[in-house]
Simulated scan of single mutants.
Amino acid sequence: MANGWTLERRQRQAELIRSWRPWAKSTGPRSLEGKKRVSRNAWKGGHRAELRELSMMVNEHVRLSRELANRCR
């Protein structure tokens, strides 16, 4: 009862939700904007791998630049 919901209240709410059946009435997004937004619901990112690859490329270029500079001395 940390959040104020007693067992009876939980059971009553569960019964009400089962009688309302909101999941049966859902039609999903209708507009293109809404469809675009929900199409990315499960997307978790991917920037980390891209940043790691970019960092490795930059580090390689820095290393090659230093080698080239050392050869010119």
Score class of each variant (00 low, 15 high):
Arg9Gln: 15
Thr6Ser: 15
Trp23Val: 05
Leu7Ala: 15
Met57Gly: 02
Met57Asn: 07
Glu33Leu: 15
Val58Phe: 02
Trp43Leu: 07
Leu32Trp: 10
Trp23Glu: 15
Ala14Gly: 06
Gly45Val: 04
Ala49His: 02
Gly4Glu: 09
Ser39Leu: 10
Arg66Asp: 01
Asn59Phe: 10
Gln11Ser: 11
Arg21Asp: 09
Met57Arg: 15
Lys25Glu: 06
Asn59Pro: 00
Met57Ala: 13
Trp23Arg: 07
Glu67Thr: 06
Ala24Met: 04
Met1Glu: 14
Cys72Gly: 10
Ala69Thr: 00
Gly4Lys: 11
Asn59Trp: 07
Gly34Thr: 03
Trp43Asp: 12
Arg66Tyr: 04
Met57Gln: 09
Glu53Leu: 07
Leu54Tyr: 00
Ser55Lys: 11
Ala2Glu: 12
Arg66Lys: 15
Glu67Leu: 14
Ala69Ser: 03
Glu33Trp: 12
Ser39Phe: 09
Asn41Met: 10
Leu32His: 06
Leu64Gly: 02
Glu50Leu: 12
Ala2Ser: 15
Ala14Met: 12
Arg73His: 03
Ser39Glu: 10
Gln13Glu: 13
Ser19Val: 07
Val38Pro: 01
Ser65Asn: 14
Leu64His: 08
Ile17Tyr: 04
Val38Ala: 02
Gly34Met: 06
Val58Met: 08
Asn70Val: 04
Val38Lys: 05
Val62Met: 04
Pro22Phe: 01
Ser39Gly: 13
Lys25Gly: 15
Leu16Pro: 01
Gly34Asn: 03
Val58Thr: 08
Ala2Trp: 05
Gly4Thr: 05
Pro29His: 01
Pro29Trp: 03
Asn3Asp: 14
Arg18His: 08
Glu33Ala: 13
Lys25Thr: 02
Glu8Trp: 05
Val62Ile: 15
Thr6Val: 09
Gly45Trp: 02
Gln11Glu: 14
Ser55Phe: 00
Trp20Thr: 10
Arg10Pro: 02
Glu15Asp: 12
Lys36Cys: 09
Glu50Gln: 11
Gln13Tyr: 12
